[in-house]
Amino acid sequence: SFNTVDEWLEAIKMGQYKESFANAGFTSFDVVSQMMMEDILRVGVTLAGHQKKILNSIQVMRAQMN
């Protein structure tokens, strides 16, 4: 498990989005775990492969939080 959203993004090789997530207010796992595709688009993730990777990881995160 990760301590910060930045660490999580690095771990899934999506570190290039750290600033975008932070600027959009997605700075805690409570918020990130609620993200939908529209949120991912809003933070500027436009590549389908990256969207899928982030969404898949969020689903895993949700499962671990319950």
Rank of each mutant, 00 (worst) to 15 (best):
S33W: 07
S28G: 08
I12N: 05
S1C: 11
D39L: 03
F2L: 10
T4L: 05
L9K: 00
A24Q: 08
A48K: 14
T46H: 12
R62P: 04
Q34T: 14
I58A: 03
F2R: 06
Q59T: 09
H50W: 03
M65G: 08
K13F: 11
T4E: 08
Q59M: 14
M35C: 04
L9M: 04
E19K: 10
G44Q: 03
G25R: 04
T46R: 10
E19D: 12
D6K: 05
I40C: 05
E19V: 11
V45G: 01
T46N: 09
V60S: 12
G49A: 15
E7M: 08
M65D: 07
L47Q: 13
V60H: 15
V45H: 00
W8S: 00
V31D: 08
A11P: 01
F2N: 06
E19Q: 10
M35E: 01
L47P: 07
Q59A: 15
Q34S: 10
S57P: 00
D6L: 04
D30I: 10
E10S: 07
V32P: 00
V31A: 15
S33H: 08
G25P: 01
N3F: 09
M14Q: 03
G25S: 04
L9N: 01
A48D: 15
Q16W: 05
N3E: 13
S33T: 12
A22C: 07
N56H: 13
I12S: 04
A48F: 08
S20E: 09
L41I: 15
G25K: 05
N56M: 14
K52V: 12
Q64V: 09
L55K: 04
F29E: 02
N66P: 08
I12C: 05
A63K: 07
T27V: 11
K18I: 10
N56T: 13
K52W: 10
F21V: 02
Q51D: 02
V32G: 00
K13L: 13
I40D: 00
V32E: 01
D30Q: 12
M37T: 07
A11H: 15
D6Q: 07
T46L: 12
F21G: 00
N56G: 10
S1T: 15
M61G: 02
T46E: 08
D6A: 12
H50S: 04
F29M: 10
E38H: 10
L47F: 11
D6C: 06
V5R: 00
F29P: 04
I40A: 02
V60K: 09
F21K: 00
Q34E: 12
I12H: 04
M14L: 10
L9D: 02
M65E: 06
N66H: 11
F26E: 01
F21P: 01
S57I: 06
T27G: 06
Q51R: 10
D30H: 13
S28I: 04
M61C: 04
D39V: 03
I12V: 04
M37K: 09
F29C: 05
M37P: 12
D30G: 09
M37A: 11
L55G: 03
S20N: 13
N66Y: 04
I58P: 00
R62M: 09
I40K: 00
T46I: 14
E7R: 06
N66G: 13
M14V: 04
W8L: 02
S57R: 05
I54R: 00
Q16G: 07
D30S: 10
W8G: 00
M61N: 04
F2A: 08
S20Y: 07
F21T: 01
M36W: 07
T4R: 05
E19S: 10
W8Y: 02
Q51C: 06
N66E: 15
V43P: 00
S28Q: 06
F29W: 07
N56E: 15
R62K: 15
K53C: 10
E38F: 06
T27F: 06
K18H: 04
L55A: 06
L55P: 00
D39E: 05
M36V: 15
F29L: 15
V60G: 10
M37I: 11
I54Y: 01
I54G: 00
Q34G: 10
V32A: 02
Q16T: 07
S57G: 08
K53S: 09
N23F: 09
S33K: 09
D30P: 09
M14A: 04
N23R: 13
W8P: 01
D39P: 02
D6W: 10
V45A: 03
A63E: 15
E7S: 09
F26T: 02
V45D: 00
M65Y: 06
F26C: 06
A48S: 10
M37H: 12
Q64M: 11
G25F: 04
L41V: 14
K52S: 12
W8D: 00
E7H: 07
A63G: 11
N56Q: 14
M65R: 03
E19N: 11
N56A: 14
Q34H: 09
Q64T: 11
Y17V: 01
G44A: 03
L9T: 00
I58E: 00
V31Y: 07
M65V: 07
E19I: 09
M65I: 12
F2Y: 12
S1Q: 15
N23L: 14
A22R: 15
T46Q: 11
D39N: 03
H50I: 02
D39Y: 03
A11R: 08
F26G: 02
N66R: 02
G15H: 08
N56Y: 15
I12K: 02
E19M: 14
M65P: 05
N66L: 07
Y17I: 04
S1R: 13
F21L: 03
S28N: 13
N23C: 07
L55R: 04
N23H: 12
Q59P: 02
V60W: 11
N3L: 11
Q34R: 10
G44V: 01
Q64D: 09
M14W: 01
N23Y: 09
A22E: 09
D39G: 02
A63F: 07
N23G: 08
Q16C: 08
N3S: 13
N3P: 09
F2P: 07
A63L: 10
G49P: 13
M65T: 07
I54L: 13
D6I: 06
V31I: 14
E38R: 09
M37S: 06
V31N: 09
I54A: 01
A11E: 12
V60E: 15
K13Y: 14
W8I: 00
K53W: 15
M37Y: 12
V60N: 14
V5K: 01
T27I: 13
Y17G: 01
G25Q: 05
F29N: 02
M61L: 15
Q51K: 05
Q59R: 11
G49D: 15
K52Y: 10
R62C: 07
G44S: 04
N23E: 13
F2S: 06
Q34Y: 07
N3H: 13
D6G: 11
Q51M: 05
E10V: 10
E38D: 11
K52H: 12
S33C: 07
F21N: 00
N56V: 09
G49W: 15
Y17K: 01
L47W: 08
M37E: 10
Q59N: 12
E10C: 06
T27A: 08
Q16N: 06
L9G: 00
V43I: 13
F29A: 03
S33D: 04
F26H: 04
